[in-house]
Design a protein around this nucleic acid. Structure first.
Lengths: 187, 187
DNA sequence: AGTCTATGACACAATAGTGTTTCATAGATT
DNA sequence: AATCTATGAAACACTATTGTGTCATAGACT
């Protein structure tokens, strides 16, 4: 398979896109369904991805790469603590569907060491930010860091649900998310 | 199948329990696995549940019945608004695994009108409580009711994760949940 | 003790999905 | 124009799972 061939590229991209979309709706979707959704023959799918597992692994890696890319500028800017978390929420919100995808396929992808490595690095970075927030006094010490990290994770997921269902646009979702995270829904 | 027969009862209960536990770990688990986990013949499973779908539907209904039962005393006590939501969080926390189950099997169960009816009723009740909270001034009007309901949903799910992973006991989870929900993690 | 019935083991058909192979063809490269 | 190569269609073997049917047996009810 000559990767420079525009046909091969188009097929591959179409398959990756269709993979995310289809598996997002139904994590048990067959490879036939995915190929059909990509408007590509089932045989072609197997030419690009040896097995079902490999397809899912590559989709997971792609999603993680995207989230990494979204976080990178924040690291480069050397933002810290609460400020960094706020930037992160804004940056990650447009990738809502990738989060859904990763979560729903997690039971398959977690077998892959490469995937879990990247994921754990992201979680560790988030922990670091929370710790910084506690030190700078912008995050309460009443709750464990693990708790805070989990809450942030859930918050992103919840926002993603609302955005995907169309009940909320990305803008208001991320600003509401920041408010809810640091101030709760109390008056 | 004579339901009064103790053998039949035992089998049925064992199957329902094994169903939750097994499908919680792996939503794609086969009926053989579930039967084995219940220490019951595969044939017996099919005697109690005509199809795989029916088993899952009954498991979903059972989970919803449990959450309903947990909420009922709060309705009876005629608690309102924020107070009611706090009670709810405490009452629902022990049912964490049921929430996980419902969420992970949702793509199957949502086809069933009976299941979605009950679920929607629960969501509507939650909406009512949020509205009451807004009126009594304990919940901010800055965010939509849908937003608040989604956040509560996510919060419960997040707590459930922590409890299930053993990183947090039910007690501290529910008190932290209340704090986080109404006050956020800000200092 | 005698009858009823839920059960488990086994065999079975039917289905669905996975992964491979072959071959003619349309599109890309030179 | 001639060559190379990715593709789609079809046929294929293989596996896992679903769902059904039979029958002897152990447990429950009278």
């Amino acid at each position: 398979m000559k990767s420079s061939d525009p046909r091969a590229n188009r097929s591959r991209q179409a398959l990756l896109a269709a993979g995310i979309e289809t598996l997002l709706l139904n994590p048990n979707a067959s490879l036939s369904e995915i190929a059909a959704h990509a408007e590509v023959g089932r045989t072609t799918l197997y030419r690009h991805f040896k097995t079902r597992e490999q397809l899912i692994q590559e989709l997971a890696l792609e999603s993680l790469a995207l989230t990494n890319a979204a976080i990178e500028p924040i690291i480069k800017q050397e933002l810290k603590g609460r400020e960094a978390i706020e930037s992160m929420l804004h940056a990650l919100m447009p990738l809502a569907d990738r989060f859904h995808f990763l979560l729903s396929l997690w039971n398959i992808a977690e077998d892959d060491p490469e995937v879990t490595n990247i994921y754990n690095r992201q979680l560790e970075y988030l922990s670091l930010l929370v710790e910084q927030g506690k030190q700078e006094g912008s995050i309460t010490r009443e709750m464990t860091t693990t708790w805070c990290v989990t809450m942030i994770d859930c918050l992103i997921y919840g926002c993603a649900s609302l955005v995907r269902s169309g009940e909320c646009d990305v803008q208001t979702a991320s600003t509401s998310a920041v408010k809810t995270l640091f101030g709760g829904i109390g008056a």
